[in-house]
Amino acid sequence: MDAIYILLPVALFLGLIGLILMIWALKSGQFEDMEGPAHRILFDDDDDLIPGKKSKK
């Protein structure tokens, strides 16, 4: 049972990492636009970045 003395802090530490990640995401504005990014990936506006593909313009 002594394992609990190590396992519990380890579990809490992992949880804490999750919490810190969440706070970081919040601070860096990840929750500001919940819809846009899902659509943004579909904008074909990177033609000139793809090798061998000529931009339409």
């Binding site: 500001e32 636009d33 919940m34 819809e35 846009g36 659509h39």
Partner: peptide, 10 residues
Amino acid sequence: VAEARVNFST
């Protein structure tokens, strides 16, 4: 214009 970004939700 240096940067323009539209927020879909707001």
